[in-house]
């Protein structure tokens, strides 16, 4: 779906590369978590994926289309993006107006727009808020509206650029549940950027960024085994994983590395019934 071939990007000539000779590919329908500490290049990477930035060198292709100044409008139809600050991406004066914004830009006829706006709002469970002004919504609700605005355009990829960073725990939960719900009903590639590894645990694959390069890539269970190495580059594995690491050192071996509490408790229950 998305291919990077030796991509570099620097914000200005005097500073180093924010993304450095990066090659990688993201498959269709994959849920990727892109992790790294602040300043590791992960947000730059996201902005390269839909042509908000163009690479200094190297090539990027999305769905077979090579990214350039001539194609980025096409690519933005395929790649939607939810940003960090819920307040600063809300363009419309009401929820409905905001969801319609992308459709207006693409010149979709009005009757079609009305249908798509309602459908998208129902998908993120915000339909009952359709006439509300943004200042009446919580952060989590605003992010759901942002997702609806993207769903209405029917893209193939949605990038979440630290979309949970400014949310409270309930808002984070709302966002993750919405994404999980979408994955059940639609085929869609998700790129989820975060520095919170317990959120990354839900992804199919984690790509760890450090100093503008891909530092590691693998399934969450594989990545979380590198507790010490990750903490050296400023990341922290989920609490459950560190607890399991402690158990592991003291002779408790489970079939698979637990990613969250339920997996740990269930496996311990199985294990203890054998003992």
């Amino acid at each position: 779906m998305i291919e990077f071939n030796k991509v570099s990007y620097s914000y200005d000539k005097n500073s180093g590369n924010a993304v450095d000779e990066l090659s990688m590919s993201i498959e269709q329908n994959e849920w990727i978590a892109l992790i790294g500490h602040n300043g590791s290049g992960k947000s730059t990477l996201a902005k390269l994926m839909n042509g908000l930035l163009l690479p200094t060198s190297g090539t990027i292709s999305v769905d077979g289309l090579s990214l350039s100044e001539d194609t980025y409008w096409e690519i933005r139809k395929k790649v939607g993006m939810v940003f960090q600050n819920p307040e600063n991406q809300f363009v419309g004066t009401t929820v409905m107006d905001d969801v319609a914004f992308g459709l207006e830009n693409l010149g979709v006829p009005r009757e079609e727009m009305v249908k798509r706006v309602s459908a998208a709002l129902k998908e993120v469970d915000m339909y009952s808020f359709k006439d509300q002004a943004p200042n009446r919504l919580s952060g989590g609700q605003k992010q759901r509206v942002a997702i609806a605005g993207i769903l209405a355009i029917m893209p193939e990829v949605i990038i979440f650029d630290e979309a949970s960073t400014m949310l409270d725990p309930n808002g984070k939960q709302e966002l993750l549940e919405t994404i999980k719900g979408l994955r059940k009903t639609k085929k869609m590639t998700i790129v989820y950027i975060t520095h919170d590894l317990s959120e990354a645990a839900y992804a199919d694959r984690i790509i760890v960024m450090n100093e503008g390069r891909q530092w590691m890539s693998g399934k969450p269970r594989e990545v979380f085994q590198y507790q010490n190495e990750l903490s050296e580059i400023g990341l922290e594995i989920p609490l459950i994983s560190s607890i399991y690491a402690g158990m592991n050192e003291h002779g408790v071996k489970l079939e698979k590395e637990p990613l969250h509490m339920k997996e740990l408790v269930d496996q311990l229950w199985k294990l203890s019934s054998k003992m």
Partner: peptide, 9 residues
Amino acid sequence: MAMEARGYR
């Protein structure tokens, strides 16, 4: 940036 990402031209 958000507007541009949503195809505003």
